[in-house]
Design a protein around this nucleic acid. Sequence first.
DNA 1: AGGGGACCTTGATTGAGATCAAGAGGGCAC
DNA 2: GTGCCCTCTTGATCTCAATCAAGGTCCCCT
Lengths: 248, 248
Amino acid sequence: METPELGTTHVECEECPIRHRAVCARCDDRELGLLEEIKYYRSFDAGQTIAWTGDKLDFVASVVSGIATLSQTLEDGRTQMVGLLLPSDFMGRPGRETAAYDVTATTEVVMCCFRRRPFEELMNRTPHIAHRLLEMTLDELDAAREWMLLLGRKTAREKMASLLAIIARRDAALRPTTMGRTLEFDLPLTREAMADYLGLTLETVSRQVSALKREGVISLEGKRHICVPDFDRLLVETGDDADGGMLV
Amino acid sequence: METPELGTTHVECEECPIRHRAVCARCDDRELGLLEEIKYYRSFDAGQTIAWTGDKLDFVASVVSGIATLSQTLEDGRTQMVGLLLPSDFMGRPGRETAAYDVTATTEVVMCCFRRRPFEELMNRTPHIAHRLLEMTLDELDAAREWMLLLGRKTAREKMASLLAIIARRDAALRPTTMGRTLEFDLPLTREAMADYLGLTLETVSRQVSALKREGVISLEGKRHICVPDFDRLLVETGDDADGGMLV
DNA sequence: AGGGGACCTTGATTGAGATCAAGAGGGCAC
DNA sequence: GTGCCCTCTTGATCTCAATCAAGGTCCCCT
């Protein structure tokens, strides 16, 4: 629905992103060829559920374009987003049959899929891929634990600033044309989705966005397009250590 | 300092727990032998810091006895615990030089260590070990994301009940003598540490413990010893789906 | 036995964010 | 254009947990 360019401009070449980051950064041509043989593409509509918690999931995949979310729900309907899948992110877990979370496409999503069995067999024969998977999982674990700090100890304002900083960073990494400390990007999430990610209500998210705008930390064009005139200023608002502030 | 039996009774035999769960559940004798060759033991006093975030860490390890915590800190000192290491848990990350979190021993801790380089080389040659590591990391990721749900969406009471349920379950798994739905265990953490884990203050933790006791969900002997007369009743208080309630 | 200190409990008050409520903006179908 | 719906904003009020404050318990040390 929104930000269609986010999905299509991130890959360094026009091919499947797995060549670049997701699965096989250190593989040689022969190994890459094996991956090529078992891959296929699938697309999902905006708003479509890709998998429910507990669903049998017979593939793993790499996001080519679009945005998907991982979320968990309590009995009474309270939900918490536990991950965001942006282009080049990996989804699914070798060695596990079922989805551990609800996966939802928030925009139209294209995924580069690998059937699980052949992928696992390939992984068994190809140490590079197994390594890369472990590395990616450790990265996800770090991200999850950083998010625990945010959820447990940050104020609403710090949470909001942190989310903007993360999206800005990811966006800048995917669009290498960015220069300097001025950033501009579209929010890929509704206020409600941001609230689910941050452990807040949508009203509080809205108020925090308004406050950051009022104070000149960000400016808005419409409701989704954000300009960050001074990224360092935004980083101060996150409450994080100063040294975490590298753009990439 | 407390609960010394937790550490010493959990392993099925008297040897290093890596034989059983931590690293090599599927390895054959020869592979196990290779692990034996590079392992050594280290112990830490209660309260001692095992590693600070960013420290160079030249080993990975498996907890033999005692309890350690992983935590992260904001600039101004707010801290959030992001993981709990109980006996048989694994610590450290192959392929990464530095500690990602502060690791602290809350009781006296004994670890079975492997120097990182030899361990990584062994891992490269031994698919079982690489697999097991990926599996363990995925488990940690699931646990972290479940904790995100707790931190973002649960009430103080639900948080407290969830922590008690988790400790009770872990304790029951380590001491297979437990029977029925009545459980008894010692809290391995101070009120303050529990607060850091739950994203609460220590006063709130204390009040919630008192409330659960007042209402008969738990009973206390001293400040640390907990009895849960009806585990299902405790589970109701966690707010989780009913089907998450298997004892092991 | 007495004193000090770590840890815990409880009470009173405050405050950040949730909840309840109303309305504004913008896109789209007709 | 008109009306509807979806998303977002803003205001008023409430509530749960934080904060501030005081005292209690237990253990260890002398």
